[in-house]
Design a protein around this nucleic acid. Sequence first.
DNA 1: TTGCTTGCAAATTTTTTGCAAAAAC
DNA 2: GTTTTTGCAAAAAATTTGCAAGCAA
Lengths: 152, 152
Amino acid sequence: MRRAARKRTTRQLAQVLKALQGDHTHPFAHEVYQRVHKKLPRISLATVYRNLHSLVDEGKIRTLLLDSQGARFDPETSQHDHFVCERCGRVVDLFLRQARPVDLSSLAKQGYVVTTHTLTVHGMCQVCAARRTSRSQRPARRLRKDRCARQR
Amino acid sequence: MRRAARKRTTRQLAQVLKALQGDHTHPFAHEVYQRVHKKLPRISLATVYRNLHSLVDEGKIRTLLLDSQGARFDPETSQHDHFVCERCGRVVDLFLRQARPVDLSSLAKQGYVVTTHTLTVHGMCQVCAARRTSRSQRPARRLRKDRCARQR
DNA sequence: TTGCTTGCAAATTTTTTGCAAAAAC
DNA sequence: GTTTTTGCAAAAAATTTGCAAGCAA
């Protein structure tokens, strides 16, 4: 379950981190792979997975489990929340807890030890809500891989 | 993506629902299968998955995505929160939002349409926290399938 | 009887792993 | 030079699907 700590820096690791830094699209592993692949055409998806895990272990990125589509990765490691659009699949950073922190003191009183919490809001993003009435303008849903390409 | 609505009631569907009702352990699909299999030895895992999806579509149960272990299923469809123990894997129902609802009005003002939200707390449950100092008493972690059984 | 649902097996999809070769230090 | 990390292919794990047969209405 526990991985050995990384001991060396490699081009692959550096590019995986670079592909995420400054990004706010919360990509899936295969999307990170696609980006890194442009810089390092010989990199394998397995290496991307291993490096993503290393970066998570080091606390440089976070894993997000927001819906049934699988794990996304987030370079923003500060405490924040997420909005997931059920129509277009977009994930937006929220900072709800900054304005109103969730009160977890009752759990501590009951003997729980709290390490983190996640707050995820589901619904329609501003863009999709505005386009709601116009079906023709419905944006393409962002799906993993080519699931959406498969026609029966 | 959208499934056709179920039109008939079957023994399989009834048993899948029965296996969940009154249960607070938030089982994985294979755990539901194990339970139903005792009553209907010929049922297949595929049927359990299909019926779980039907029940979710009908709003009779909920899918929970709480950690990297995959989907759990919950017969409690009222709005509530969850605590996931990082040590033993146990999931406990919380009712934090009843005492202090999360304020999502700012999202509505920004043009978001909110349908639901999930609040999940991670840490150590009361039992594990009490046993924290005693490694020998550490409870067996609840894992999916036999992942933990695999020795190198 | 009609056509929906099941069981089975195979396919998909995502993620992990063994191992020899390459790279880091 | 030694040890870690990579690339590849294969395995593993979870879920979905095609289809003939069974069952509900």
